[in-house]
């Protein structure tokens, strides 16, 4: 299983993107003239200090936030606002507490106008993919944190996006669950052939999952650095190459 991950749609192009906020009247530039290309089917990890603008960038890609200037293009078409070609996985699972697992997974399709039975049939497929078939009639409060996050992932996949946007999806999980979920994400990404943009605080997670890592600089609005991860998949954390890449990444970005 090498990089045979070729898809035709879901390429993201970011051109000259800028975004600032106002904090107590003073402007705060978060992203300045950012350019970035993500080929279709690639997985890109975004790391960087807290407050460096990772979530902001992801929200702009999702269409939940408007940039001040610049363009986001998907497959060479400029996009504004939300689109069915993208779905977001937030840091919290954001499950609807009164719907059972199956209906939560079907929720995205249902609000897009797909009939309930059809939506549930398609939802079951993704429930199987995240390994929660037996829990389809459980309520969200009966799930563990990792299970809930898996339901959120299934819900995002059910609408069959070309681009999956993840904002620290595993940040709230314990170490063991996190490792298992990273494997799962890697498998899902390979199976579903989506473009993946993953915001994370965890360098190892970035190396484990991504084709490329982007580090947003500490000083706001500076130029981000990019590094290719040329490791074969599936990746092994204890592998000598893995450790070497990790060290390289850390020193190259002045992280130690």
């Amino acid at each position: 299983m090498f990089d045979t991950h070729q898809t035709t749609s879901g390429a993201v192009t970011i051109r000259d993107l800028s975004k600032s906020f106002h904090l107590d009247g003073a402007p705060l530039t978060v992203l300045r003239h950012l350019d970035l290309d993500i080929p279709a089917g690639q997985s890109l990890a975004i790391v960087g200090a807290s407050g460096s603008g990772k979530t902001t960038l992801l929200r702009i890609l999702a269409g939940l936030e408007e940039p001040d200037s610049g363009d986001v293009l998907i497959d060479d078409f400029p996009v504004r606002g939300l689109g069915r070609d993208r779905s977001v996985i937030f840091q919290e699972p954001r499950l609807i507490p009164w719907l059972n697992v199956l209906r939560n997974v079907a929720f995205g399709l249902e609000v897009q106008g797909v009939a309930r039975t059809e939506a549930e049939t398609r939802a079951r497929r993704y429930l199987r993919l995240v390994g929660l078939t037996e829990f389809e009639s459980a309520l969200p409060r009966q799930l563990s944190g990792g299970m809930a996050q898996r339901v959120g992932i299934a819900r995002a996949l059910t609408v069959q996006p070309e681009i999956l946007l993840l904002d620290e999806p595993l940040g709230a999980l314990d170490a063991m669950t996190k490792l298992a979920m990273q494997k799962e994400l890697s498998r899902i990404w390979a199976e579903e052939r989506v473009t993946m943009v993953l915001v994370t605080h965890d360098l190892e997670e970035a190396i484990f999952l991504a084709d490329r890592v982007m580090v947003l600089p500490r000083e706001k609005g500076g130029t981000p650095k990019l590094m290719d991860i040329d490791l074969t998949r599936p990746r092994d954390r204890s592998d000598r190459e893995f450790v070497r890449v990790r060290q390289q990444l850390m020193s190259e970005f002045g992280l130690h």
Binding site: L64, L82, R84, F107, G108, V111
Partner: peptide, 18 residues
């Protein structure tokens, strides 16, 4: 939750109802 529904492209009316 509202934002989640919004991110799937739910209309205002759908968000209200659902």
């Amino acid at each position: 939750l509202v934002e989640m529904a919004h991110s799937f492209g739910a209309s205002q009316l759908t968000i209200f109802r659902r």
